[in-house]
Structure formats: structure tokens, C-alpha cells
Design a protein around this nucleic acid. Structure first.
Lengths: 110, 110
DNA sequence: TATATTTGTAGCCAAATAGCTACATAATCA
DNA sequence: TGATTATGTAGCTATTTGGCTACAAATATA
């Protein structure tokens, strides 16, 4: 196992996912972000570091505060990987599944 | 840290992502999948287990062979989470970024 | 300037992860 | 039936991970 630091590994952790969701609403300081979690502040700080390394967020210092901002465009990398499968789950095979389960539903209702 | 077994953790590993991509093209036996990797077969077997637990793939035994099939619909879970950010990266803020970089490009070309 | 505030860093730890080899199990084939 | 094939399981290991406490550094405030 070698050290990985890619967006897929970054969003594997639920705390980091929650941080990204927080930052989707607004830019926040390190402290404000940490206040949303029971986890110790240095632990959150480490998460911010990981997210920064993946360029999923961006830090900008203002005085003694550091504001973190989401870089949603980087999430596109994940989105693009998912794209390979999108055509499959939107395909007629899935649609056939839907037809079958609709028929089932109608049978249940009858 | 507690044991997590969700699709986000599942796709964090590059080998597992490669397995999913393989299965996007066609259903394959455990052996055929393992043949695509330098990794030992039992290791791949463990990956299959993890993907199965997350319901990203489905196993069906046929004789002594086990065929694995992608369950693309489960990938929608990840897609839906990403959806929260999609509106951001498609927003006017990103478009503004594009306008600015286009202007920059034009300046460079001039 | 002394104190408080905001944040990161160092160093430690338990648990999880991905990997391996050896072995078990079950289904074909000769 | 005995050998071969396909696959999973057991058990071990090194590395990574997420978490914590204590400390350092830098900026603001009294």
C-alpha cells in the first residue's frame, strides 16, 4: 500500500464529505468548520490538509484566520469517472428493470 | 476509526475502481477479473467481497465459476451525493472564471 | 508589551487496510 | 474415483488512517 492522495480517497471519509457539504453552502474559517464536529480541532485541521492537497478546497489567510473555500470544479474529476457508468444505469437494461418492477407493483395493487 | 463499508470507501481503492470499469464492459468470472491484475488472486477476491457488500456488484455461481456483474444503479448513490455540488460547478461563478480565463487567453494570443 | 485568540505541527496510538502465502472446498474431467 | 480447476478462507504483516494531547507560531487586543 502506498500513500494515495486523490479525490476518491479524500471523499471516502464521512467527516471530509461533511466538510465539503458545509463549504458548498459558504466559505468558512478553520475554527467555524471545526465547531460543527465533535472531533478535536487538530484532527479537522488534518482533514483540511488532505482536502487541500487534493485541491478540493482552497485556503486563504486573512489576518490570523484562514478561510476555506470549496473548489467544486475539482469534483468534476469524480463526476467524470462516474460518467462511464451513467450510460449503463440510464440504459434500456435498467429501464427493463423498471418496467418489470412497475408490472409487479400493478400486480400487488390488483 | 470504525469499519466503514459504503460505496465511497469502496471506490477509494484504485484496484476496486479498475474492477468496476472492467465489469462495466462485461460480466466476468472471478478468475478472469484477477487475470487483469498483478495482485494475488485472493487479494482480488477480497476486493470482490467489499464491492459485493456495498452492492456495487452482484455474484452468481454457475458451476464452479462465479460470475460478477456490475450493479450500476448503486453507483447512483455516489452520483446523487455529487449532485449537491453539480449546481455549484455549473454556476455563474464558474462561468465567470471561464470568461476571465478566455479573456486571458485572448490577451495571450494578441 | 503582555494576554488572548486562531490555527497549524509534532508525536503518539489503536484500528483498518491491502497485500501475501498456505489451505479448504466444491465442481468438473479423464 | 483421482486429478484438475475455480474460488474462497485463514492467518499473518507492513503501512496507512483517523484520532488525541501537548506545543509552537503568528496575529490581534487590552
Amino acid at each position: 500500500m502506498k500513500l494515495r492522495r486523490d479525490p476518491f480517497q479524500a471523499i471516502a471519509d464521512p467527516t471530509r464529505r461533511a466538510i465539503l457539504v458545509l463549504l458548498a453552502a459558504q466559505t468558512m474559517t478553520a475554527g467555524a468548520i471545526a465547531d460543527n464536529f465533535a472531533t478535536a480541532r487538530p484532527t479537522i485541521s488534518k482533514h483540511m490538509q488532505i482536502l487541500s492537497e487534493c485541491e478540493l478546497i482552497e485556503a486563504s489567510q486573512q489576518g490570523r484566520e484562514i478561510f476555506y473555500q470549496l473548489r467544486a470544479d475539482k469534483m468534476k474529476d469524480i463526476d467524470q469517472w462516474l460518467g462511464q457508468f451513467r450510460k449503463i444505469w440510464e440504459s434500456r437494461f435498467d429501464q427493463l428493470d423498471n418496467i418489470l418492477s412497475n408490472l409487479q407493483t400493478k400486480k400487488d395493487e390488483a
